[in-house]
Amino acid sequence: MEERTLYTVTVFSENHVGLLNQITIIFNRRRLNIETLSVSPSAIQGIHKFTITVFSDRDTIEKVVKQIDKRVDILKAYFNVDEELVHQEIALYKVSTDQLLKSGSVEELIRKHNIRILEMTETCVVFEKTGHYAENQQLFKELSETIGVLQFIRSGRVAITKSKVERLSDMLSAIEKKMHKNHE
């Protein structure tokens, strides 16, 4: 079997009920496990953007993306590898205030990991860290091994391509031109 790489699949769709299901069943058929998933309105009104990460070989991901792209309500689907993207995840960590204070230099910890403190009570502190998966994971590991983590949650990946303009806007204007031509 070919080497499996982490691919980021970006999907732009109309905002209709049931689209997430239409997309995930295509992964299901190929037994691909979705690592992370994030859905939000895109820069263009009425269009939603899905960012999905998945381990796959190139041949399979190419076919899967073509099959997603084929769905009627999908505007565009494409895939990238990490090098082509600026990507980020966010993670929240809840730790015990007592343990944190006992651990030594809080300042050092915060500076080293670029942590923000969102909430602090007598019993617990909530940290926020944004970064790549590995960075957020590293902090989780460090905290677990030292002061312990009471609660931990991370978001799915959000990503932006390194090329200048969001490709969808080009596509939409091309479609509009074509439509006008058809109606002339």
């Binding site: 769709s13 109309e14 009627v72 309500d73 999908i74 505007l75 939409l172 479609i175 439509m179 058809n182």
Partner: peptide, 12 residues
């Protein structure tokens, strides 16, 4: 009843 035949879907 207002019927307009579909000729174009922007995502298709």
């Amino acid at each position: 009843f207002n019927y307009e035949k579909c000729k174009f879907i922007r995502s298709y």
